[in-house]
Amino acid sequence: MPQFDPATFGSQLFWFGVIFTLLYFVVIRPTLPKVGKVIDARETQVASDLDRAEAAKGSADALRAEHEAAMKAARDAAQATVAQAREAAAKAADLQLKAVTAGLDADAETAAASLALAMTSARAGLESTVAELTSEAVARLAGIAVTPADVSAALAQN
């Protein structure tokens, strides 16, 4: 193999240096700044994206805090409305209970008066019936003729 021949090492090293220098100045030297610019632009883009993401996260956190505050306010308002509704319902029920109680009291008084009238009427009817039955019983048992008015007068004395 000719590349391992020590007599050609000098010329091989010379051509290696020439080709390396040529490639360096023709290919690498013009493209290296372009690659550096692309890397710098990419770093700038990434940093900008990170900043925008951080700003979006901050605004999302602010929106979430606003939403939670609005939900808390709505919950408090709903609880206040429910408490007011309960209070109004309790007042309405109390008023209705008072009205029903007053109506029942009036009905009870009317019923008591009607009952008293019925009892008075029943007593009067009972007294006349007792007087008639007693006069008949005395007439049959003792053979004495007694009028129902006499029996009523005798009962009234006792």
Rank of each mutant, 00 (worst) to 15 (best):
T134N: 05
M1A: 15
R140K: 07
E43Q: 06
G125R: 00
E68I: 05
V27L: 07
S59K: 14
A154E: 06
I19K: 13
T81K: 15
G143A: 11
A106P: 00
L32V: 08
T44R: 09
A108D: 01
A149M: 08
A118S: 09
A41H: 09
F16G: 14
G58I: 02
A73R: 03
A99K: 14
V26C: 10
G58Y: 07
A88Y: 03
F4G: 06
A139G: 05
V130W: 01
A137Y: 05
T120D: 14
Q84C: 12
A124I: 08
Q84P: 01
T101Y: 06
R52N: 10
F14C: 09
T110C: 00
Q96F: 02
A47N: 07
L23M: 10
T31V: 14
H67M: 13
S59F: 13
A7Y: 12
L95I: 15
V146K: 02
A69L: 05
E136F: 08
V151A: 02
A149G: 08
T101S: 06
F9T: 02
G125V: 02
F25M: 08
S128Y: 01
I39K: 04
E127P: 00
A131T: 04
D49S: 05
A93V: 06
R52F: 09
R140V: 02
W15R: 08
E66T: 13
T120N: 11
G10F: 05
A131Y: 00
P6L: 11
T44Y: 08
A53N: 03
E66G: 09
R29C: 05
A102E: 11
T120V: 13
L63S: 08
F4N: 04
L133R: 02
T21Q: 15
F16T: 11
P30K: 13
A60F: 09
V26A: 12
P30D: 11
L97P: 03
G10I: 05
A93I: 00
A74S: 13
T21E: 12
G17Q: 07
D107G: 02
R52Y: 09
T147D: 11
A55C: 10
V38H: 05
F14V: 12
K57N: 07
I144M: 00
A142S: 14
E66H: 12
G143M: 04
A47S: 13
E54Y: 04
E87N: 12
A70S: 02
R64S: 06
L95H: 15
A62V: 11
T101I: 10
A74R: 09
K72V: 08
D40E: 15
L141G: 10
L126G: 02
V46G: 01
Y24L: 14
A154L: 01
R123V: 04
A60P: 02
S11C: 06
M119E: 10
A85G: 13
M119R: 07
V100L: 14
E54L: 03
A69Y: 04
T101A: 12
A153E: 14
E87A: 15
S152T: 00
L32Q: 07
L117A: 10
A139Y: 04
A77I: 13
E54I: 02
Q12R: 14
R75P: 01
A77L: 15
K98Y: 07
L50I: 14
R64G: 04
L155G: 04
R75Y: 12
A73D: 00
Q96S: 04
P148I: 03
G58K: 13
S11W: 10
